[in-house]
Simulated assay, not measured.
Amino acid sequence: MSASTSSSRNALALGGFLVVTFCAPALSAFIGMPGPWYAALNKPTWNPPPWLFGPAWTLLYTLMAVAAWMVWKRAGFAKPLKLYFVQLALNAAWTPIFFGAHEMGWALVEILALWIAILMTLRAFWAVSRPAGMLLVPYLAWVSFASVLNFTLWRLNS
C-alpha cells in the first residue's frame, strides 16, 4: 500500500469514527432534549450552566473518536473497539431515558452501567495505546460528574 493510499485510508477511518461517535448521541437527542420539564427541576447550586454542555460534549466526542481511531490503527476491530461501541450505545441511551422518559432513577442505573463500560473501554484502550487510553480520561471524569448530578437531581426531585 502506498503512503498516499495509507494516508487516505487513515483519514477516512478517522472521519468514520468521528461520524459514528457524533451520530449515536445525536440520534438519541431527537427523542428527548432538555426543555420545560428539565428547566422546572430543583437543581443543586453546582449544576453547570446550559451553555457548557454543548462545548464539553463536542470536545469529549472528538477525543473519544480520536482514541477509537488510534486503537483501530494498532489493533483493528478487536475487543477494545467492541467495548467502545457498547459504551457508545449506552451513552446514546441515557438522553432518551432521562430527558425523554423523565425517568431519573432508571437514568441513574443506566449512567452507572455507562461508567463501568467507559472504565472497561479505557483499560482496553490503554493496553493497546496509552495515549488513546488517556484521551478517555476526561470522558470518564465528566460521566463521573454527570452520575453525581443525575443522582442529586433524582434525590431533589423524587
Rank of each mutant, 00 (worst) to 15 (best):
M1K: 08
S2E: 10
T5E: 13
S8K: 10
R9N: 13
R9P: 05
N10A: 05
L12D: 10
A13C: 05
A13D: 11
A13Q: 07
L14F: 10
G15H: 09
G16F: 15
G16S: 15
G16A: 14
G16Q: 14
V20W: 03
T21V: 03
F22A: 14
C23P: 03
C23T: 11
P25T: 06
P25Y: 06
A26N: 04
A26T: 13
A26Y: 03
L27S: 09
A29W: 05
I31H: 00
G32N: 07
M33V: 11
P34C: 00
P34L: 00
P34R: 01
P34V: 01
G35K: 00
Y38I: 07
A39M: 10
A40T: 13
A40Q: 12
L41K: 05
N42E: 06
T45D: 15
T45P: 12
W46M: 06
P49K: 14
W51D: 03
W51Q: 06
F53D: 15
G54E: 04
G54I: 01
G54N: 03
P55I: 14
P55Y: 12
A56S: 14
W57Y: 02
Y61A: 08
T62E: 06
T62F: 14
L63H: 02
M64S: 13
M64Y: 05
V66D: 08
A67W: 02
A68H: 00
A68K: 01
M70S: 09
V71D: 08
K73I: 09
K73Y: 10
R74F: 04
F77V: 03
K79W: 04
K79M: 14
K79H: 04
P80V: 12
L81A: 06
L81F: 04
K82Y: 11
L83C: 10
Y84D: 04
Y84R: 05
Y84Q: 06
V86E: 01
Q87S: 08
L88I: 03
L88V: 06
L88Y: 00
L90V: 13
N91L: 14
A92H: 01
T95D: 10
P96R: 09
I97D: 12
F98R: 02
A101F: 12
E103P: 07
E103C: 07
M104S: 04
M104T: 04
M104K: 07
G105P: 11
W106H: 12
W106L: 15
W106Q: 10
W106P: 08
A107D: 05
A107L: 09
L108V: 13
V109T: 13
A113I: 09
W115G: 07
A117V: 12
I118W: 00
M120S: 09
M120C: 08
T121H: 14
T121W: 14
T121K: 11
R123Y: 03
F125M: 08
W126Q: 01
W126S: 06
V128F: 12
P131T: 15
P131C: 15
A132V: 00
L135N: 05
L135G: 00
V137M: 04
P138R: 10
P138L: 07
P138T: 09
Y139I: 00
Y139S: 02
L140Y: 01
L140F: 06
W142G: 00
S144Y: 02
S144G: 15
A146C: 13
S147Q: 05
V148M: 08
V148F: 13
V148H: 05
T152R: 01
R155K: 04
N157M: 00
N157W: 12
N157P: 09
N157E: 02
